[in-house]
Design a protein around this nucleic acid. Sequence first.
DNA 1: GTTAGCGACCCAAACGTTCGGGTAACGTTC
DNA 2: GAACGTTACCCGAACGTTTGGGTCGCTAAC
Lengths: 362, 362
Amino acid sequence: MCANGTPPVTLRMLADQLGLHVSTVSRALHGTSDESGRAASPATVERIRRLATELDYRPNPHAASLRTRRSNLIGVLVPRLSDIVLAMIYEGIEEAAAEHDLSTFVANTRDLPEIQRIRTDMVLARRVDGMIFGDAYVDARFLGEVAARGVPFVLVNRRAGDLPSVTCNDHLGGRLLGEHLLELGHRDVAVVAGEPYASTGIDRTQGFVSAYAEAGIEIPPRRIVRSPFDATGGRAAAEQLLADGPPPSAIFAVNDFAAIGVLGALRDHGLHAGTDIAVAGFNDTPLAAELPVPLTTVRSPMHEMGRRGIELLVRLLRGEQVESEQLRPELVVRVSTTGALRGGGSSGSKQGVARTHVHPPA
Amino acid sequence: MCANGTPPVTLRMLADQLGLHVSTVSRALHGTSDESGRAASPATVERIRRLATELDYRPNPHAASLRTRRSNLIGVLVPRLSDIVLAMIYEGIEEAAAEHDLSTFVANTRDLPEIQRIRTDMVLARRVDGMIFGDAYVDARFLGEVAARGVPFVLVNRRAGDLPSVTCNDHLGGRLLGEHLLELGHRDVAVVAGEPYASTGIDRTQGFVSAYAEAGIEIPPRRIVRSPFDATGGRAAAEQLLADGPPPSAIFAVNDFAAIGVLGALRDHGLHAGTDIAVAGFNDTPLAAELPVPLTTVRSPMHEMGRRGIELLVRLLRGEQVESEQLRPELVVRVSTTGALRGGGSSGSKQGVARTHVHPPA
DNA sequence: GTTAGCGACCCAAACGTTCGGGTAACGTTC
DNA sequence: GAACGTTACCCGAACGTTTGGGTCGCTAAC
């Protein structure tokens, strides 16, 4: 806690040194001007403040938590932080949490229900004030139990049941991409649809499918394959799509990493992404623009999602009524669907962005 | 902390319900069999244990920390969790921490000294038992101050001064890559060297350079360009290398992400990685194998690094004397340097790994 | 000339643990 | 049968805050 030679300075030390009572010191330092105003004269408050900074007083959060029963701690569960999507969401969470004087614990659950349970228990044992789940199963079974235990929490990235969540409007995102590929004339398309328990994959797929449905095109089930949300998963899914019969003319992977796997598989098959087969991803990961074949994708505001997650949780902790939020996605068109810039020559844009196409909200 | 209706069960509740004193209950539940043995009869211990599990007793960590002055909390600082290298290291940290009943706070410092300061203060204010820095500046100035404050800590990923650290043997890694490129006949090579304050980039570059020096080839300064550790940085560095005069025949980027940026830049210039110019990275990020042009790189044991970091810190907290550790890197050869598999056809390996080449340690 | 009100404090009881000391009862040993 | 050890507990003081209540002296109103 503090292996330092000198033990940390406490309220009592300040009080003794000033000839005051600890409660006075506490109020002076803590109070919101009205509290400290009633606790001591302005001059005294000033004296206290000065000594506190001089001695570098840091309140002991354990003592405070013990007393107040609030820890200012938030537990965060994610499938894996090595998924950059979650990492960026977490960056938003951490940033916003710091602004609210909250600290966060993160734990990786690898999307495994048993680990979700164990980690949730560990986090709760630490007496967090609330939790943020980034690994919700769409069926909300486990989360229902957590809710029953009375712990305030919100979801980010994935929605589940009618629990409060901050998500990207994934349905719209899928739809934007569907419309984009339709516009380009693709009629035989496939979806690398992600895991069946994650609302992200489900909603993005559904949005995409319904865009096609509205254009009178039904995407057959064999064109929709599930997959893990990573490159290896995307590659395997693409292999499967390329294995039976004529390949689709476009592939939408519900996640940039899966899309990268698709790109790799195409290359292995001697196919050129963007010209032979259009490929699109989702999330607009920083890498998407930098890939050798820049990737058409849908930007989801990951950082913002994390921030909003904390804001929502804070409101929940205040006892306010909260509503789920959906953040607006944005289509980002690059050469993996347009096939422009093939075969090099210095590109006009260093970012490899062919053009950015912002759709209005639905 | 617990917005639950029923307040959490405490030692006193157990004690009252059993007609015992709280200290007895505490010792029975906590004691290491010898302690609990002296505290109560085996039968009583059993009664206590049973009631504790029945009522689902969870010790209040704040109360315990207040009393013991140990929090079982570890603060972790990283440049950014959205850097997958750090994310994977952190996964190792978290895993090992959990095994030691430690919880971790992570904070992103974006490699900015001012934020390192602020975050360190925040983390320390939480009364952590120790810290792990993944964002060390090689000059160790700031860390020297932290050490002076008496906080136990270790470094991971980057070394600094003679502070205890767990790193990859970056020098060896750079050397392996140098030897590999020499073997392939490259004489005019360039290095995308990373940030000048990070030991990783410095050591990898130095290892690479010294491999060449031993072969009698001196790499001129203009062939060594610094860059941020991301794709955009790598791209910019590659542009710079390609801008003046004839391009090198191989480029070593000290980080996979920078290498991906290099790949993108090459493509923009109509150059083909692996055949026109060899490209190598460092870290063997999961993506490296999945890229359209699979990337030759050096595997650094990131997860393990995190684990060892915790182990080292735990020993430090026990007051033991500790030594820095260097983990062994491993060369992974893929087509971005060998140029095999060009132009597709289904590859022999789904992973895109041409061959894996393990060097013995130095 | 009493008293109400207020400003500037003090008091003390929590919060849930831990841990260095009791202590009473019950054997043993010499 | 006195001295000594054990066994199986109990006691109580911390740890550093917070917070609902005092209290005391002063001014101002009636």
